[in-house]
Nucleic acid binder design. Structure first.
Lengths: 219, 219
DNA sequence: TTTAATTAGTTGCAAACATAAACTAAGTGG
DNA sequence: CCACTTAGTTTATGTTTGCAACTAATTAAA
């Protein structure tokens, strides 16, 4: 019943080149100083109101990421995951459109299928986050948080298809988006510059900026 | 960044009188000594392999509860939920058939709709567990873990209806159970003693004893 | 021993829903 | 102004769902 090391980590995911990518941060402290790892740190008991607050604080260091979709992924624990001793990590995952992410020397986007040498159990954590995102994408509005606003329905469909790994029926997809009721057409705004018919531009209704709409049936 | 109090709590749920009931334990220590609360305690860093292991240890104290369905619910945290200071509780929920639960002076079943005076944020935790169970019941095999084996399909349907709070269509329900593919008929075993046609008895296939089968569509 | 009552389990059909293909709409570039 | 491309809708077809009515198997009572 000795000391438990207690930290908060964040899996910041985005979609770039039709693939999930995770933001990794170069560690400034031991253990694993200088290695790319999930951003995170200790809870600040003097200023954090809870672990979610701590996760938001971790994210605020990243320029461009203001108030992303954020959800608790789960808590990972054990005696060996951290060389300092028996540890717990409360993990949150965040989704942001890739246009909002600015990479830096100490903040790098990596494809989630190509993660080598991650310290701690961070590879397992990223895998769990991807599974959660892909699973929720199949019956919810989750993917809208990966789409830079404003966006068209065909663009959003591409995002869904990238996450689900399968092509979707255009008519069904539009009907589902209509049922989820999270999007609002921007009056008079259409995509332009392409050699074809412009598409209606949409944005997420304010009430759904940080929430999920669930579908009874799969998308 | 001072000390964080780190505990594991368990929401042990069962279905009695067609209502979700939670097992509460009379606390033997401060704070709130003598009060009914969720069973739980500190992580034993010398013997627990992770927090799930700690939750199972907490449950092993309860006679009759051997290897229930167990899933991490989430982690609850903050400066005020525990009078001792900034604390984290990693919470698991377990489902067991009510026939396996033996109540005692220090272990009492309470209806989840009738919880007064729970210490810490345990009322909120129980509410979150119920929401999770009811939600998962709508598209998975979760409720089979609340049904004492062997059981009939009509009995299982009553369990689903109690959790979902609405009557289900008999034909659809049987089709869904067939699709979930978690049950096996016990050859030659039928319910008896009732003044009507006996029903086939079923049990959960071994592979699904601690897992969930998910349905694309709602039950 | 028959009959009524009750619940288990199946069948058939109509309505609701999902999918694919074919269509119309609206832009760009030659 | 015509070919090409993608946006968005319509139509037809196939699949899923839910209700009602059916048959099946038991007990209790006449």
């Amino acid at each position: 019943m000795s000391e438990v090391i207690c930290t908060v980590d964040v899996v910041l995911l985005t979609l770039r080149d039709d693939a999930l990518q995770v933001l990794l941060h170069r560690r400034e402290r031991e253990p694993f100083v200088g290695t790319l790892a999930l951003p995170g740190g200790y809870v600040h008991t003097d200023s954090d109101r809870d672990t979610r607050d701590a996760a938001l604080r971790v994210l605020r260091d990243k320029p461009g990421v203001h108030s992303p979709y954020l959800e608790q992924l789960g808590t990972f624990s054990g005696p060996a995951r951290d060389p300092r001793g028996w540890s717990i990590s409360v993990v949150y995952y965040a989704l942001v459109p890739d246009t909002l992410i600015t990479e830096a020397a100490d903040a790098v986007l990596c494809s989630v299928d190509d993660l080598r040498g991650l310290p701690f159990d961070h590879a397992q954590i990223v895998a769990a986050a991807c599974e959660r995102v892909r699973n929720k994408s199949s019956y919810s509005s989750l993917p809208v948080h990966l789409c830079p606003a404003p966006f068209t329905l065909p663009q959003l469909q591409v995002v869904y298809e990238a996450l689900l790994g399968e092509p979707l029926n255009k008519v069904s997809f539009r009907r589902k988006m209509d049922e989820l009721d999270v999007l609002e057409a921007i009056p008079g705004a259409f995509s332009s510059g392409n050699a074809h018919r412009p598409a209606q531009l949409y944005q997420v209704k304010p009430a759904w900026r940080h929430a999920l709409s669930l579908s009874e049936r799969a998308i």
